[in-house]
Structure formats: structure tokens, C-alpha cells
Amino acid sequence: MSSPYLIFFLIFSVYPILFSLTLVFHRWNIISPMKFVGLENISYLIHDPLFWKSITNTFYFLLIHIPLQVVLALVLANALNRKMRGMTFFRASFFLPVVISGVVVTILWKSLYSTETGLLNNLLIQLGLFKIPWLTSVHWAMPSIAIMATWKNVGLYTVFFLAGLQGIPRHLYDAAELDGASAFQQFIHITVPILNPVVLMVVILSTINGFNLFIEPYVTTGGGPVNSTLSVVLYIYRQAFSFYKMGYAATLGFSLAMIIFIVTLIQKRVLEKDM
């Protein structure tokens, strides 16, 4: 009964990986025959400013997205972790953006972010502040996308943290209280260490998410202004399906996979040692 899986695995995993590896050493636009170019794709990649731009863009995104995500999810999970009426409603509303298609969320936020007519800038003006060029400024565009992505995903991580919080035995807090620990001390010395594995998971999932950023810049900015929101997947998409550089796109894909692997490995090391 495992045969469907084995057949599927051969066609949709083994073959693509081998083929992808072959493509790294070739130049190919699908139509004309494949041409062996040795390490040309790799050396092109090393000197490709747009590739490195897309990588630094992603790190910039993660730098804002991950801390925001972890802190907000922890706060929301703590707020939900009470035996009070209406918690189901609150949990469900935090989670709503998670189930809604990224396309909807992105279109919605593009409207909210609109410099002249957007809700956010209208609100800022009402408060007597100034307009922010959310998606049209080189400095603001990536942070704006990071805020939007956090809004979309934070509900999921809230639920992860909530499950973690509910697994902490009550008597730990009781003992700490007897010893005179404040609520904040309890949070730092009991809650945070126990939730460390969940934090690690949230960090790794957000990182993978960040490296896979596609639809958000595709719909809101098209990678602009001046490539400030060009993501790696968007760059691969363009190389492959706008320019038909299959060999180079495959090289980009492999490099991205390796970068994700290395980054998450480092995160795992650091976070597991940390506490």
C-alpha cells in the first residue's frame, strides 16, 4: 500500500531534484537545446547584485517580522490564557487572517497603505500626524510588508504559544508566588524558559515564511521601489518565467534552499543554547 507514495516520490521528488541539479550546470530557455556551461551560473550568481539585494531584503524583513511576531504572539497568548467568557470569540478573531488567502490580505493592505486615500494615513492625519509613504518609499516598503505579514500570521503563533502556556503546571507559579516572585519575574523565569521550544519553532517557521515571500511583494509593489522589496522567490519567478533562464533560476533555487537550511540551523543552535 506504500506504492502510491513511492511512485509519487520518484516522479515529484527524485526526478525534480536530479533535474534541478543538472540545470545548475546548464543554460536553457526550454525551447532551444540545453547547453552545458559548467560553473557559469554559480559564478554569475556570486556576482549578481540583484540576488544579494533579494537576500538582504529578506534579512531586513526577518529583522522586523520575527521580533514583532514573537512579542505580539506572546502578549496575545497570555491575554487569552484566562478562564473568562468570550475567549473562543477572541481566539477566533485573532486567527481569522491566518485562514484567509494571502491574496485577499495583500489586496486589503495595499488599500489600507495607500498614501493618498488609505485608511492608515487618513487616521494619522486625523490624529494630527503626517502621512507615511508606506509602500512607495524605499525605506518604508519592506517594513510595511513585514507588518502586514505579521498581522496575517500572528494568530497562528498565538495559538502555538497558548497551547504551550496551558501545558505549564499551575504549581510552579504557586511555588514562585510563595517565594515572593512578582508576576513579571514569574513570566521571565518560568514561562519564557518553558516556552523556549515554541519560540524556536515560531522563529524557524517565520524564517522559512520570510524566505518564501512572494505574493506580498508581487501584488503590492512588484518588488519595487528600486528593488527594495524584491524577494528571492519573486526573483526566481522572474528569471524562470519572464526571462526563461531555467538554469539560472534552478541555481537560485538551490542557493536559497541552502541559505534557509544554514540560517535555521544557526537559529536552532543559538536558541537552544540560549536558555
Binding site: S2, Y5, S13, F19, S20, I208, N212, A249
Partner: peptide, 24 residues
């Protein structure tokens, strides 16, 4: 063996398989 193959498949990011699968 199948179990390990499965673990392995779950770890392959789609960026690697995207283009070959499209060509397929």
C-alpha cells in the same frame, strides 16, 4: 527506508522542485 525518504521529502524546499516540476 520509506520513513527516512519521507522525512527527506518534507525537508526539500519547494524552490528546488518548482522549476523541474513545471518542466515536467
Amino acid at each position: 527506508l520509506i520513513f527516512y525518504i519521507m522525512l527527506f521529502t518534507m525537508m526539500i524546499p519547494f524552490q528546488i522542485t518548482l522549476i523541474p516540476t513545471y518542466i515536467l
